[in-house]
Computed example of a mutant assay.
Amino acid sequence: MTDTPDNPMDTSGTLDEALERIHLAGPEFEGLLSNHAPMAVEALVRHGQAPVVHRWFDRYSTRLEDMPGSTAPVTAQNWHEALGDIRRVADWTLYFERETADRPWRTVLAEWWPRLLPGIAAGATHAVIRVGHSVRTLLDGEETAPRVRELAHALGYWAARSQPLPELERLAPAPDAAAALDRVPLVAEQAGGIRNRFAQLTGFPDWPGQVPDGPAAARAALQELVRASTHRYATHGYGHPVMLVHAATAPNAVLRTLPALPDALWAPSLHAAWAASAAVTAAYAPREAAPVAEHQAPQDARELFARAAAHGDDHTIKFTDTALDVGDATALAAAGLAIELNPPAR
């Protein structure tokens, strides 16, 4: 994989300014739609598009809703009862703001990651994706107050929306991630919302099989999954251009978080990422593959991301960011397809 951001340090201060604006809003709007602003803004800044960030957010923010009020504090004693209760999202956010103010953010993340990992499907996987963008920023640059606060908001959203997948059967093993994704049984009724679709899940191929031998093997398998799911969008993204981006962006968020986690959490993180990618695939993928149209993407990664930024759709920006992490011709073609299929921001 490649990762060659134009300016990951963001000496302009644009990212911190944007995050301060974003934190006035809640993590969802219009019922169940996730606030993608922190993720899209981080990707825009990272890939040299800081000058367009505030204009992009001005347009996007017209859809957002204020952060709801707090009801009762989440504490170390009562957090179990608040887990998965979206009505407590403000309580959760304040809890993680206190935690990250009192302790190093890596310590808080390491404590809560295994608690939240079973609910990786939270917010249609947007919660873990938001965490991944936040952690990448903290690892690559200065640990400013808005960036640490963004991690608190991301963890708070994940805790409030925690959604364990149903108990699933382990099906026959697959030799690699691409084959495993091809063998995921699709849900019988691909209609309705994501909760209805996830409720129909029955089982996934047993991949990667045995527990990886050490953190390096877990990381390599996760990289393979991100590559395979990104490539698969090039042939199957037409089935649901918005939702299928998450089959790649969710495991990539986990991959981005690994360096901030203890080694012992890398293998469980891989298995949770596989479950998330397989669940989205089962819920939204079409049965037939389409040919990969190589003309859909330019060879220059900078030009491709500039096209995604001009397109303006939040999902397209995030998926192109992941495709650039993978970096090969098929990944760039997949991003080009996302730009073509998803409606541009208005």
Score class of each variant (00 low, 15 high):
residue 1 M to L: 06
residue 2 T to A: 07
residue 5 P to I: 08
residue 12 S to N: 07
residue 16 D to F: 03
residue 22 I to D: 04
residue 23 H to I: 10
residue 24 L to I: 08
residue 30 E to P: 03
residue 31 G to T: 10
residue 32 L to H: 13
residue 34 S to E: 15
residue 38 P to F: 08
residue 47 H to T: 15
residue 53 V to A: 03
residue 60 Y to Q: 10
residue 63 R to Q: 11
residue 73 P to M: 05
residue 73 P to D: 08
residue 73 P to L: 13
residue 75 T to D: 09
residue 77 Q to I: 07
residue 77 Q to P: 07
residue 83 L to G: 00
residue 84 G to Q: 04
residue 85 D to E: 14
residue 93 T to I: 14
residue 94 L to C: 05
residue 99 E to Y: 04
residue 100 T to E: 14
residue 102 D to Y: 12
residue 102 D to L: 09
residue 105 W to L: 07
residue 107 T to I: 15
residue 108 V to I: 12
residue 110 A to Y: 09
residue 112 W to Q: 06
residue 113 W to F: 12
residue 120 I to M: 03
residue 127 A to Q: 13
residue 129 I to N: 03
residue 129 I to R: 02
residue 130 R to M: 06
residue 134 S to P: 03
residue 134 S to N: 11
residue 135 V to W: 00
residue 149 R to H: 11
residue 150 E to A: 12
residue 153 H to K: 05
residue 167 E to D: 08
residue 170 R to V: 10
residue 170 R to F: 04
residue 174 A to T: 09
residue 179 A to D: 10
residue 179 A to T: 15
residue 180 A to L: 08
residue 181 L to P: 00
residue 190 Q to P: 05
residue 194 I to Y: 04
residue 198 F to P: 00
residue 207 W to Y: 14
residue 207 W to D: 02
residue 209 G to D: 11
residue 210 Q to K: 14
residue 218 A to H: 01
residue 219 R to L: 12
residue 242 V to E: 09
residue 247 A to F: 03
residue 248 A to D: 01
residue 251 P to C: 11
residue 254 V to K: 01
residue 263 D to S: 09
residue 264 A to C: 09
residue 269 S to Q: 06
residue 271 H to V: 06
residue 279 A to I: 03
residue 279 A to V: 04
residue 282 A to T: 00
residue 282 A to N: 00
residue 283 A to T: 10
residue 289 A to N: 05
residue 290 A to W: 05
residue 291 P to N: 15
residue 293 A to Q: 08
residue 296 Q to F: 10
residue 298 P to V: 06
residue 302 R to T: 01
residue 304 L to P: 00
residue 313 D to P: 01
residue 314 D to S: 05
residue 317 I to A: 00
residue 318 K to M: 09
residue 321 D to Y: 14
residue 324 L to N: 03
residue 325 D to N: 13
residue 326 V to M: 11
residue 332 L to E: 02
residue 332 L to A: 15
residue 334 A to I: 13
residue 344 P to Y: 15
residue 344 P to D: 08
